[in-house]
């Protein structure tokens, strides 16, 4: 079981990172603004993999402890963490040399949903109820 969860974590992390990179390109095309220091392939891949591996660890823990109710509880917890994480791009103060910091949340907030989306999109391929 843990192998499948691990593969799901890695796959959803890569999927989310790819979605972030594409969205970053689209955002640049739309607004002609980049936040290179904050959003770059390295940081995006690292953060998304970390988020999805943490989600995988949590899912494994819930499966071990709650068994029957694990999925329901995990989904709620994952959703809560995702929403809570939205505070970060709203509250963060960027370096003063970054132009148009008011456009940063519109870039970063959708990205915070990508691990969640990636996880649930790919879950049926790895774990069957």
């Amino acid at each position: 079981m843990y192998k499948r969860i691990f593969y799901l974590s890695i796959s959803s992390g890569i999927f989310a990172a790819f979605a972030c990179i594409v969205y970053n390109k689209v955002y640049f095309f739309a607004f002609e603004i980049e936040f290179k220091k904050q959003v770059n392939p390295g940081s995006v891949i690292g953060i998304n993999l970390l988020a999805c591996i943490a989600a995988g660890a949590g899912y494994y823990l819930f499966k071990s402890l709650l068994r029957k109710y694990a999925d329901r509880v995990f989904n709620i917890v994952f959703m809560c963490f995702t929403f809570a994480s939205l505070v970060v791009p709203l509250a963060i103060s960027l370096p003063l040399d970054v132009q148009n910091p008011e456009l940063f949340p519109a870039l970063a907030i959708p990205m915070h949903f990508f691990p969640f989306v990636g996880w649930f999109s790919l879950k049926p391929f790895f774990i069957r109820d």
């Binding site: 709203l90 509250a91 963060i92 103060s93 960027l94 370096p95 003063l96 970054v98 148009n100 910091p101 008011e102 456009l103 940063f104 949340p105």
Partner: peptide
């Protein structure tokens, strides 16, 4: 004015 945070700037 620039605080590095768009919300704070507004």
């Amino acid at each position: 004015i620039n605080t590095g945070n768009g919300m704070k700037n507004t």
